[in-house]
């Protein structure tokens, strides 16, 4: 007679997938953009990133201990938050800035809501807008690429906002990241390599990134130029944090809609808000705010974009 049989409800098999496997894959997919950031801006970019990750993980650990809950630092989610926050910072900020930002991201952006899966906003973006509101000077001082002696340079979007003419930046330079900007947002090529991995793995779907980028492009083409239908839409795609945001932050599972229909609306909303802020808003860049605003709209979108149930018309 066979003893000690396990009895549990069906199903009895499970897909080889776990939260930590997904999260660490996302971390892995962000490495190319990180390497590009270090190549372009020097080792400062690396220190900022490492400090942000360490602060995020330590904050997560502290909350785990204080709340006597499961310690979740190994699931990779805090690491992602640290990396994404750093990727949204200029490369030569003082190192206390990423620490403050990462602590805020994890503590206020994530843990006060109940930890993983409970946050209503993308934690890294919460940290970023907190830093933006508190220390705008540090957040908007950028370095010229490949000049490791801290020569400052405005980002292409900021130059555009001030109404100056962009002369010497080609689309190729924008694509490769040879311009001022945040650590992880500048090299579109590296970001696309990482994004391709996540798409192939099926960990993100095309719905949000495609609609987000497409909507921004259309809208900036129509309204972004001196006359209507003359905007430089390709410039808008390649500059600022659009690609980083569309593939890695607007796709954050927790704060985005569940159904494909909902995700399409979310992406369009992000695209519209980004374009509106860039064209008419006070800031040169609108990706962070656009995503956060759409995060807030997610429960509402979910409510009205349920899938059709079989047999129901």
């Amino acid at each position: 007679m066979i003893n000690n049989l396990t009895v549990s409800g069906s199903p009895h098999i499970h897909k080889p997938v776990s939260v930590s496997r997904i999260m660490w894959t996302v971390v892995f997919s962000l490495i190319p953009a990180g390497i590009a950031g270090v190549v372009i801006f020097g080792l400062d970019a690396l220190w900022v990133t490492l400090v942000a990750v360490a602060a995020a993980v330590l904050t997560e650990l502290t909350f785990g201990i204080l709340t006597k809950k499961k310690i979740t630092i190994l699931d990779g989610s805090a690491v992602i938050t640290g990396i994404l926050l750093a990727f949204n910072l200029p490369p030569q900020v003082p190192l206390w800035l990423p620490i403050v930002g990462a602590v805020f991201s994890i503590a206020i952006g994530k843990q006060v809501f109940g930890g993983l899966g409970q946050n209503i906003f993308n934690p890294a973006l919460v940290g970023r807008v907190f830093l933006m509101a508190s220390w705008p000077k540090y957040m908007t001082t950028f370095n010229r690429p490949f000049s490791f002696d801290a020569v400052t340079s405005a980002t292409p979007l900021a130059i555009l906002k001030e109404g100056k003419v962009l002369e010497h930046i080609s689309y190729l330079d924008l694509f490769l990241g040879k311009h001022g900007g945040c650590i992880g947002e500048v090299c579109i090529l590296a970001l696309l390599i990482g994004a391709a991995l996540l798409l192939i793995k099926g960990y993100i779907s095309w719905h949000i990134p495609a609609t987000y980028i497409f909507t921004t492009a259309i809208f900036t083409y129509i309204f972004g130029g001196a006359q209507i239908f003359s905007g430089d839409w390709l410039f808008h795609i390649l500059s600022g944090g659009l690609v980083l945001g569309a593939f890695f932050m607007a796709t954050d599972y927790v704060a985005t809609p569940l159904t494909a229909k909902g995700q399409l609306i979310f992406g369009v909303g992000c695209g519209l808000l980004t374009a509106v802020i860039r064209i008419w808003g006070g800031y040169p860049e609108g990706v962070s705010y656009a995503i956060l605003m759409m995060n807030a709209a997610t429960p509402f979108i979910d409510r009205y974009t349920k899938n059709r149930i079989y047999g129901v018309r």
Binding site: I22, G117, Y253, L258, Y310, G311
Partner: peptide, 27 residues
């Protein structure tokens, strides 16, 4: 194969939503 794993919080990845053959939102 019989090993039981602990439950983690729902991360709203929507894998169940995409997989459900009758169009429910299981999560």
């Amino acid at each position: 194969e019989a090993k039981m794993y602990d439950e983690d919080p729902c991360i709203r990845c929507a894998a169940c939503v995409r997989g459900c053959p009758v169009g429910l939102m299981p999560c």
